[in-house]
């Protein structure tokens, strides 16, 4: 797929490899969440180091982070919320909406850069200068509601990317697969009435884990009924249960939807060494699930898949997890 001559940025890439974009920017470290907060800048440093030390950087096409045009953010969040977030940062407030959402002066501009970088990534794929991509951004997005910050999230990155795909690039059907250990309440609520976006989430059971939504009977509403899928997994479960659900439920659901573009809310926090959850997945599982997702992309979206970072807090494991994740995209 794709000729290597188009991407001079990645001279080391084997000709058989995919043109995989990698979004990372040092400015993503500027969103500080105060001491002892798990959603810390070190997460991204660990991810970058893992990819760098794995020798993968030369094979990847760098994607630039630029601040998002507000009109794209406004496809999901009202101006009043965007302004409230900006004002809170300017006024030196320490949190937005909940104590989970710590902010600093740079949080708003960092969030704009996260969205902008993801939209740049999507654009490069639609312009056929890359095939797929991993967006290592902060802050994450899938808990962000239309007008409310929640669960370390401010702007709903994947939701905005989906709207951008539809409105700027004429993509009709977007599939979003969310394998962060927490349910993406924001993403679900934004699209629950919308049959053009299929949201599939597999996560720790909401009776035990944040945010308390994503129960199996939440299947969307009105015209969107049947386009929201939730698979709660009980704490203590691991690879076997996840593999069973992915194979028997997730893959057929996405196959049936036939998306034209795939986005993933990529969270590494269901790893057994991550203390944010009771789910016990192995490092190998994360490689496996991404292989299933790129296979779905080959079948339906011409390989177009953008992975957007959500959670994942175990600094010891993030390097290998990110390295393996990117390898799957390169070797799709």
């Amino acid at each position: 797929m794709g000729s290597s001559s188009e991407s001079s940025d990645s001279p080391e890439r084997e000709p058989t490899m995919k043109r995989t974009g990698f979004l990372f920017d040092r400015r993503y470290l500027l969103h500080e969440t105060g001491g002892f907060h798990p959603e810390a800048p070190e997460r991204l440093t660990a991810i970058y180091q893992g990819i760098e030390e794995g020798g993968l950087l030369p094979s990847l096409t760098p994607v630039q982070a630029t601040p998002a045009d507000l009109r794209w953010i406004e496809t999901v969040h009202p101006r009043s919320y965007i302004d409230r977030f900006n004002d809170a940062c300017i006024q030196g407030k320490k949190m937005l909406d909940t104590p989970d959402n710590q902010i600093c002066a740079e949080s708003y501009s960092t969030a704009l850069l996260a969205v902008g970088g993801i939209l740049n990534t999507v654009r490069m794929i639609m312009e056929d200068s890359i095939d797929n991509a991993f967006c290592a951004v902060r802050p994450p997005g899938h808990h962000a509601e239309v007008s409310e910050a929640m669960g370390f999230c401010y702007f709903n990155n994947v939701a905005i990317a989906a709207r951008y795909l539809q409105q700027e690039w004429g993509i009709q059907k977007v599939g979003i697969i969310d394998f962060d250990v927490h349910h993406g309440n924001g993403t679900q609520h934004i699209f629950e009435k919308d049959p053009s976006v299929c949201y599939y989430s597999i996560h720790e059971h909401p009776s035990f884990a944040f945010p308390g939504t994503g129960r199996v009977f939440e299947k969307g509403s009105a015209e969107g009924t049947g386009f929201t899928h939730n698979h709660p997994i009980l704490p203590g479960e691991g690879d076997d249960e996840y593999r069973k659900i992915v194979t028997s439920q997730m893959v057929p659901a996405i196959d049936a939807f036939e998306p034209e573009f795939l986005l993933t809310s990529t969270g590494f926090d269901a790893h057994c060494d991550d203390d944010m959850s009771g789910i016990q997945l192995s490092t190998e599982f994360f490689t496996w699930i991404m292989q299933q997702i790129v296979a779905l992309a080959q079948r339906h979206t011409k390989g177009r898949v953008v992975s957007v970072l959500e959670g994942g807090y175990c600094l010891k494991r993030l390097p290998e997890l990110a390295r393996n994740h990117v390898s799957v995209l390169l070797n799709a």
Partner: peptide, 27 residues
């Protein structure tokens, strides 16, 4: 608890000598 951020409080409670239960063994 109305937070997503529980890893620190869990460690703290364990440090105080409390036993945190696997919720599956006891709901």
């Amino acid at each position: 608890l109305l937070t997503m951020n529980v890893s620190r409080i869990k460690k703290k409670l364990e440090g105080m000598g409390f036993e945190l239960l696997d919720p599956m063994k006891w709901y």
